[in-house]
Design a protein around this nucleic acid. Structure first.
Lengths: 138, 138
DNA sequence: CTAATCTCTACTTGAATAGTCGACTTAGTC
DNA sequence: GACTAAGTCGACTATTCAAGTAGAGATTAG
């Protein structure tokens, strides 16, 4: 698993949307300026997140983006999967499980890969935007 | 962190060298045939592992490769770092630690990345070639 | 209507991945 | 010592992916 620049941008943008969840829609330009992200590229990213139903958009004047769910219901694992693909260090969890069963010569190796992916998923699927927003925790 | 085909080939080749550690040097061709790896590409990989002092070579007739240390002293994390770079999902552990300290807006995010890398390193730096050789464990 | 804003397709540029090729060097064997 | 079986190493290629950029179109507020 690898988090690309694009993935990092997505996470930064979403963190901001999380922090300002109570406000109305926020413009791409504003997100780009606040987080210092390339605006045109950010467009693509938010579009992708929109299609994946993580955010929702309002078009036209007064438009912008907001989270589709509360920050504590959006997990980092979900975002990374959308932008950068599976969390496993090689292929994906399903392929690895198959390989563990089928490739006898290397089943121990693939089992280790699977353990790594499970460790990553354990963290990323339990850390939400709320957790990284820097807001006070109860 | 991402394990490339090249990284997988390296791990497969080393697993074989681990299993046959007691034999003398094993030819590239033999490794390539046994593990079904592209021979010329495997050459490059073994050369790189040689430079990194993971394996050692014997040239000329009767030549080949053998592990430079016993299988249980060679860890997967080491191999992956040589072939595919740092274990962190973004940048490397040092950069992440710096970012946690310096980028206040995103320090929680980088802290999570660091936790993921530590989890991966915890597994990969404690799993040796002996552990994945499929030999009987005591 | 018009200005602001998101939507979407296409393109570009550079780097990385996954190899291949061929000449060279080294070291056993007869 | 010649022959031959290896590893060494630089150069080359093809394909894919990353990270953007550009620009026309669609939608909505006022």
């Amino acid at each position: 698993m690898k988090v690309s620049q694009k993935g990092l941008y997505a996470l930064k943008a979403l963190t901001l949307l999380g922090r300002r969840y109570s406000e109305g829609p926020i413009k791409i330009r504003e997100i780009a300026e606040n987080e210092e992200l390339p605006e045109k590229f950010l467009e693509l990213i938010l579009l992708e997140l929109n299609h994946a139903r993580v955010v929702e958009s309002a078009r036209g004047a007064k438009g912008g983006y907001r989270l589709k769910r509360p920050p504590k219901e959006i997990f980092l694992g979900e975002i990374i999967r959308i932008i950068d693909g599976p969390l496993a260090p090689f292929e994906d969890a399903e392929s690895l499980r198959r390989l563990v069963g089928e490739d006898k010569q290397h089943s121990e190796l693939f089992r280790v890969f699977l353990a790594v992916r499970n460790a990553a998923a354990g963290i990323l699927d339990h850390t939400s935007l709320a957790d990284i927003s820097g807001a006070q925790r109860s």
